[in-house]
Simulated assay, not measured.
Amino acid sequence: MIVDLNLKGRNILVVGAGMEGTKRIKSLSKHDCKIIIISETVNESLYEIEGKNNPIILIRRKIEDPNILNEFNDIFIVFASTNDPFLNKKIIEKAREKGILSYSIDDAAASDFFFTSIINIDEIIQVAISTSGKSPLMSKIIRDRIENAIKNIIGKKDTDNIKIQEFAREHVRNYIENQHERREFLYSIVDDQEIQELLAKNNIDKVKERIINTLDKWEDNKSR
């Protein structure tokens, strides 16, 4: 099962900051989470993301056993990314004892989740290719094979509609109590020719104004 975890505001612990660990840190830095790194040495490319308003805490320390996890509270995910496979295994086991999701860079099968190869469209739409950890290499090859085709199918109109749907969902709850009616209203925005023409002209403010006016009319009709 592929899921898209909401990491915003979560505490993520990365044990080991070599090349593979740094790859995960760079990916995590895009998710508005707090990243705590414990490592005696650090891959130089990690400094590319330090100081860019990313909440990153770097603790330089030699990692000798998994009990280091006992020093931290409220950790959502632990990444075992040391250069010692045996230590990584012990870190995964310790994380499980503490009820924390965990991932090992050298043993996907022992991890609680797998990484996917992502096709990213304007940081709004993500299409994931997964082999369930069986072959990360093949997931990347397949991603490269289909990425251009996917981006030709999904375009600016779709990303603009997502932005408008987000705006509408935030406001519709204040006007329409019934969930089925809310869903109908959201579908009607996609089917509204005038709204779609305004989006094509990049007139987002006019679209938002039309949505609010429509919701105001909805409330007026309900109160009569």
Score class of each variant (00 low, 15 high):
residue 6 N to R: 09
residue 11 N to F: 07
residue 13 L to M: 12
residue 17 A to P: 08
residue 24 R to W: 10
residue 25 I to K: 06
residue 30 K to W: 04
residue 36 I to C: 05
residue 37 I to H: 00
residue 41 T to Y: 12
residue 46 L to K: 01
residue 48 E to A: 08
residue 51 G to C: 11
residue 52 K to Y: 11
residue 55 P to A: 13
residue 56 I to N: 10
residue 56 I to L: 10
residue 68 I to A: 04
residue 74 D to W: 08
residue 76 F to G: 05
residue 83 N to I: 06
residue 85 P to K: 08
residue 86 F to T: 12
residue 86 F to S: 11
residue 87 L to M: 01
residue 92 I to H: 01
residue 95 A to P: 03
residue 95 A to I: 02
residue 97 E to D: 14
residue 98 K to E: 12
residue 99 G to V: 04
residue 102 S to Y: 00
residue 109 A to I: 10
residue 112 D to F: 09
residue 115 F to D: 03
residue 118 I to V: 15
residue 121 I to P: 14
residue 123 E to S: 14
residue 133 G to V: 06
residue 134 K to L: 10
residue 139 S to N: 05
residue 140 K to S: 12
residue 141 I to M: 11
residue 145 R to S: 13
residue 146 I to P: 05
residue 149 A to M: 06
residue 150 I to E: 03
residue 151 K to P: 07
residue 153 I to N: 11
residue 159 T to W: 13
residue 163 K to L: 14
residue 169 R to H: 08
residue 170 E to P: 00
residue 172 V to P: 08
residue 174 N to Q: 13
residue 179 Q to L: 15
residue 180 H to Q: 14
residue 181 E to P: 09
residue 183 R to M: 10
residue 186 L to T: 02
residue 187 Y to W: 11
residue 189 I to Q: 01
residue 195 I to P: 02
residue 195 I to W: 03
residue 200 A to R: 07
residue 201 K to R: 11
residue 201 K to A: 11
residue 202 N to P: 01
residue 203 N to M: 07
residue 209 E to C: 00
residue 210 R to H: 03
residue 210 R to M: 04
residue 213 N to S: 12
residue 215 L to F: 01
residue 217 K to R: 13
residue 217 K to W: 01
residue 221 N to K: 15
